[in-house]
Amino acid sequence: MYSNETTQKVTWHKACHVDDIPEDGGGCALIDGRQIAIFNFSRRGEWFATDNQCPHRQQMAVSRGMIGSQDGEPKVACPFHKKTFSLQTGKCLNDENYEIGTFPVMVKENLVYIGI
């Protein structure tokens, strides 16, 4: 299952078991030395992945943020200062100076894969 379409060729990395990420919550996986925040947005039936680092104060905490939606757009709020980022585009929704990277997610046989 692909949650994000992508034209770029990506390499799929096994990140974790689906149970490792709480429903409607997030967790952080270390993939090739890179911290990736993974979100199990079960209410929407979607998975998302972004950088774990918030570009505002360079804190590794996006995965600990609360997810939700704004006018239907899925988003995550950094727990430090509540900068919120679109889970689809990575754009900061309350401060246009910031943006985080997003990654495609694939769930196969209860395992979560991230495309980088």
Partner: peptide, 20 residues
């Protein structure tokens, strides 16, 4: 539970304001 409250009385997916 939050899910029950959102199902009964809310709409959408919630956010960092209504959840806490």
């Amino acid at each position: 539970t939050y899910g029950a409250v959102l199902d009964e009385f809310g709409k959408g997916d919630g956010c960092e304001v209504c959840k806490p």
